[in-house]
């Protein structure tokens, strides 16, 4: 192989047809309030973890929608489970339970149960 001094960039595009929807399916079955989210960002605005780190729970929920498992895994571990996001949600989305269920789903994926 010739060395050209560069390698070919990988796309950043979300290729929806080819992403992994296992976490999403699990979540919709176990925390149906997820469906009501309008991605308004109230959760992120009040988020305890988000105030000190780059954790963004609104983004996490979109990653779940799009099936971006890698991104989901790295985001989901940042939550401190304080539950303020549930208190402020205008659509009654149980964000705290979403995190718990996502973590569950990820464990199951790792152990090939999903």
């Amino acid at each position: 192989m010739t060395d050209f001094g560069f390698t070919i960039n990988k796309p950043r595009v979300i290729d929806y047809d080819n992403t992994d929807k296992r976490v999403l399916k699990y979540l919709l079955a176990h925390e149906p309030s997820f469906n009501s989210c309008i991605f308004c960002g109230s959760c992120t605005a009040t988020c305890s973890a988000g105030n000190f780190t780059d954790f963004n729970i609104r983004k996490l929920k979109i990653f779940i929608r799009r099936g971006l498992t890698e991104e989901i895994a790295s985001e989901a571990e940042k939550c401190m489970l304080c539950g303020k996001c549930f208190l402020v949600c205008p659509r009654g989305v149980n964000n705290r339970n979403i995190i718990l269920k996502v973590r569950e789903a990820l464990t199951k994926i790792e152990s090939h149960e999903l």
């Binding site: 001094g5 560069f6 070919i8 960039n9 796309p11």
Partner: peptide, 14 residues
Amino acid sequence: VQANRGYSAANSKK
């Protein structure tokens, strides 16, 4: 610039 050519090749590849 050589360092950036991965961008160029990636677009043609696409």
